[in-house]
Simulated assay, not measured.
Amino acid sequence: MRALTTLSIVLFLTMNFSNAQTEKSGNTITVTIENITNNNGSVLLSLHTKNTFMKGAGIKNEKSKIENGTVTVTFKNVAPGTYAIMALHDENENNSMDFDDSGMPKESYGMSNNPMSYGPPQFAYAKFEMTSKDLEMDIRF
């Protein structure tokens, strides 16, 4: 009887532990960029809220090697909310955007919603709503 009780406790704890490992606390956002001009360097992607947009690192940050001019990155466990994604082709692997003497970007970049802007990126144009469903999006450089 004691062995049966011990076995029951072990099975209960094992089942609870394995369920805790597979439980997720949010959904995923899968981003694909297909028009990268070369395979040099990597692509840096960051998930931002209004408070972090254009102010530094995002709340989630990913880095991906480029294969055949394409990257696909997944942000995992993203809670519902309003976000924007910024992407940079970091050709020289210095982890930042490079600018020419006139202040224009030397490296390709893009944002969620693919807005066409002639100035600094704006959260209002790049924002999207994350609900309780997984998202897939394409970003163009």
Rank of each mutant, 00 (worst) to 15 (best):
S132H: 12
H89Y: 11
N95T: 15
P121V: 10
T22L: 10
D98K: 12
S46A: 15
Y118I: 09
N38M: 12
Y125G: 05
T49G: 02
K65C: 04
T131K: 13
F123N: 03
Y118L: 13
N95M: 14
N61A: 10
Y83Q: 00
A79P: 02
S102F: 14
K55V: 03
V71T: 07
T30Q: 12
N39S: 14
M104Q: 11
F128C: 07
D98W: 11
A87I: 13
N94I: 15
I33G: 01
I59N: 04
T131R: 08
T52Q: 07
V78K: 00
A87D: 04
K60V: 04
S132C: 03
P80Q: 12
G58S: 06
T22E: 13
N38Q: 13
L47C: 03
A126H: 03
Y109R: 07
K133F: 01
N94H: 09
E23Q: 14
G119L: 11
L88C: 10
F75Q: 05
S108V: 06
M116T: 14
A57I: 08
I66K: 04
S25V: 08
F53W: 12
S46L: 05
S64E: 05
N114A: 11
T131M: 05
T70K: 15
Y83C: 00
S25H: 13
K65Q: 09
E23M: 13
K127S: 08
S102A: 14
P120Y: 12
P80T: 08
E34G: 08
I66T: 03
F128A: 05
T74Q: 09
S102L: 13
T82A: 07
P120R: 09
N38S: 15
F123C: 03
G110L: 06
N94K: 11
V78C: 00
D98V: 13
K50D: 06
P120T: 12
F123G: 03
Y83A: 04
I29W: 01
N39P: 05
H48D: 08
K24F: 05
N77M: 10
S108E: 14
S96D: 12
K133M: 06
N40G: 03
T49E: 02
T70L: 06
M130D: 07
T52G: 04
N27W: 02
G110T: 12
F75L: 07
T52H: 12
T74E: 07
P115H: 04
E23G: 00
M111K: 09
M54W: 10
K24Y: 05
G119N: 10
G26Y: 00
Y83S: 02
K60I: 06
F128L: 10
S108Y: 10
Y118W: 14
V73W: 01
S96W: 04
Y125L: 14
T72Y: 00
V78L: 06
Y83L: 01
